[in-house]
């Protein structure tokens, strides 16, 4: 029987750019993540922080507490009591406080989204299609970036919208128009750095336990030791050992708000550290994916 009789025929449609495949990868990655109960627990932990900030904004704008109380509540959450003054720090504080939850979420996602492709040798399923390793890397980076976004800049923007909506005019949004841009820029820094680091680590370590140990060593243990060294030696530069703090300094650069002069001095160095780290991760990642041979 000829192939035409069997009703097999070639594809005559027009194929889209392989870059669209990255969106499919993101969709699959999110489905994989949200299928597991443990991730919902972690996302729930992330939501508690959002609800706390949401409640604070609601309380100070709607319940009209005495001025002194209002001022103290706002300061505790990094917002300025003056509506006309820049009210950026609260958003930085919120995104910073999400770091533990983000770290835990990413520690597991690495093995699930990237490590499994290498461990179970499923990478050829991707690379045997029209996409090449660049599309694969971009898809995985984007998937991790979406997870980071869901816990950081997206809720921060929601808080900004909430703050403006609970005041009786558009003044808050008009006067703080730079805030959403800064939130987006800080969010971009977090997404780029964290996704590159996680995808590179997961591609090399593959299993959940080694990824979790390395990830938490980088983000918890180094932060702790950096703080000790900074305190004991009095040298602020030790703070650069802490990747979270580096990202925060760069974030503050985006907001243009520094609480201490030392932070301002260290911010460009933090950017350099992150740049080197991201470059190294990208190199490692390309090298790891290149090792996979696919017969086309």
């Amino acid at each position: 029987m000829s192939i035409d009789v069997a009703r097999y025929h070639g594809w005559h449609g027009k194929l889209g750019s392989p870059w669209w495949a990255t969106l499919a990868m993101v969709r699959v990655a999110l489905l994989q993540v949200f299928r597991r109960k443990a991730y919902w627990i972690v996302l729930g932990l992330g939501l508690t922080q959002f609800l706390l900030f949401w409640s604070v904004i609601y309380a100070v704008t709607q319940l009209n507490p005495p001025p002194q109380v209002r001022e103290r509540i706002l300061e505790a959450f990094g917002f300025s009591a003056e509506t006309a003054a820049p009210q950026d720090s609260g958003y930085i504080l919120f995104m910073q406080r999400q770091s533990l939850v983000v770290m835990i979420l990413l520690a597991f996602s690495g093995s699930l989204l990237v490590g499994a492709d290498f461990r179970l040798q499923t990478l050829p399923f991707y690379l045997s299609r029209r996409i090449d390793r660049m599309h694969y890397i971009a898809g995985k980076l984007l998937a991790v970036a979406v997870l980071v976004s869901l816990l950081t800049w997206v809720p921060a923007l929601l808080l900004f919208i909430e703050y403006g909506m609970f005041t009786s005019s558009l003044t808050y949004w008009v006067e703080n128009w730079r805030v959403p841009l800064a939130v987006l820029a800080y969010g971009l820094v977090l997404c780029v750095c964290l996704s590159l680091l996680l995808v590179a680590l997961s591609a090399w370590l593959q299993r959940a336990a080694p990824i979790a140990v390395t990830w938490s060593s980088l983000f918890t243990f180094l932060a702790l030791l950096a703080e000790y060294l900074r305190e004991e030696t009095g040298q602020q530069a030790w703070a650069l050992l802490d990747p979270w703090r580096d990202m925060r300094y760069v974030g503050r650069m985006c907001f243009g708000v520094f609480t201490r002069q030392s932070q301002e001095a260290l911010a460009p160095w933090a950017l350099l550290v992150l740049g080197v780290l991201c470059g190294a991760c990208l190199l490692l990642l390309v090298r790891r994916v290149r090792a996979v041979e696919v017969v086309e």
Binding site: R36, A38, L45, A107, F108, A208, S216, T220
Partner: peptide, 15 residues
């Protein structure tokens, strides 16, 4: 997924 739960325990419950 014991590693996931253990990490939540070690970093969240313990800390």
């Amino acid at each position: 997924h014991a590693t996931t739960v253990a990490l939540i325990y070690a970093l969240f419950m313990e800390l």
